[in-house]
Structure formats: C-alpha cells, structure tokens
Design a protein around this nucleic acid. Structure first.
Length: 177
DNA sequence: ATTTACCGTGCTT
DNA sequence: AAGCACGGTAAAT
C-alpha cells in the first residue's frame, strides 16, 4: 500500500483542497470514504458529513457516491486480511509526531494487537505514552490505519473513537480476540 | 486501591 | 502567549 504524508496540524488541514466523499456498506457498519486527488484521506465509521468537516475545516467537500464506490468496494473486499494491498494510496495529514505514530500503526499485522507503550517505544519516545494515545485517537483513516489494534496494557478498557463496540467487532473480524 | 508524573495536541482565554 | 483537558502506564503511596 502506498502512503503519502503531509505535515499539517488540524487547524490548517484542508486549505485549497477538494475532497470527494460518499457513504458505503461495510461488514461492521457504514463507512464514509473521503478522497483527495492523491488518494484516501479519511475514513469514518457510522458517521456523516459533520465529522468529515471537523477534520477538514478549510476543504471543499463534494458528495459523490459514484466516485468513492470503487475504493469502498476494495476496502470491503480486502478487509480483514489484505488491506495492505489496497490499490489506492493512503494520504496522511498530521504533525510529525502523529505521522510517526500512524506509520508505526501500519506495521501492525492483521490479527495482532499492540499496546500504546509499545508504539511509544518504537518511535523513540518511551515516556510519551499518553501523547501516543491522543495521536492514535486522531487517526484520520480508520480501519486501513489500524488504530483499533492498539489496546490498553493494564486496565483492559477498550477505548475507541467510533465506540468500543466497533473496536471489538473489528478485532473479532480480524480474529484478534 | 488511589495518586502522581510523564508528553503532544487542540481548544479556550 | 499562556492555561487547560485529554489519553495510557509504571511507580509510589
């Protein structure tokens, strides 16, 4: 899977950018697929345009289900085992720290889970566990960038931006539970 | 079992 | 520009 990264914090994200989006079926719910000219820039679960807007303040949003249908079909077809073979590039916009965390996430294999502390160690900031937690939570491309595979080391609490039930459903689908 | 300290980000003042 | 709230973990109380 090709990955394109851009340094851009949330506030400046999406300026002079046209984003085409559509909502499609997926095994664990509806996914909102959003594309720039470069590739897949956002993926939300069971949400609407408002969430997309929150993450792309300055962007022009164009609803076009026909334009996003192929990518959505590919994602549904390749999940859970072969998402790394996704033909469309994944476009990540974030701070340097966030980009590091998300790229580390991409190395986690389907069926496996890691802890926040593990990621923190991998990126060379072992003390920044909480910062990793918030970076994981700000992941823009759910499912494809597997933020659901990061689990709490001690408390067992499952926290997930789209709701704990979805995280469990995704992990079960990948045979990680 | 509760509290404390650590880090990066985004929102509010 | 400064302050606050969030989020996970290990260590100290």
């Amino acid at each position: 899977m090709k990955v394109i990264t851009h340094k851009a914090a949330r506030a400046t994200r999406g300026k002079n950018l046209t984003i085409v989006w559509g909502i499609h079926d997926f095994p664990v719910g509806k996914i909102l697929v959003a594309l720039t000219a470069e590739g897949l820039c956002w993926l939300g679960i069971n949400c609407g345009k408002a969430k997309l807007r929150e993450n792309w303040k300055g962007a022009e949003l164009v609803e076009d289900n026909a334009a996003t249908a192929k990518v959505a079909r590919d994602i549904a077809r390749l999940w859970p085992q072969q998402l790394d073979k996704l033909p469309v590039p994944v476009v990540l916009y974030g701070t340097e720290f966030q980009l590091k965390v998300w790229k580390e996430l991409l190395k986690v294999k389907s069926g496996a889970t890691v802890t926040y502390a593990h990621i923190a160690g991998k990126i060379g900031r072992p003390a920044a566990v909480r910062a990793v937690g918030s970076a994981v939570g700000k992941n823009t491309v759910s499912i494809v960038v597997p933020c659901h595979r990061v689990v709490n080391k001690t408390s067992g609490i499952i926290n997930y931006g789209w709701g704990p039930a979805l995280k469990i459903a995704l992990l079960k689908g990948e045979n990680a539970l």
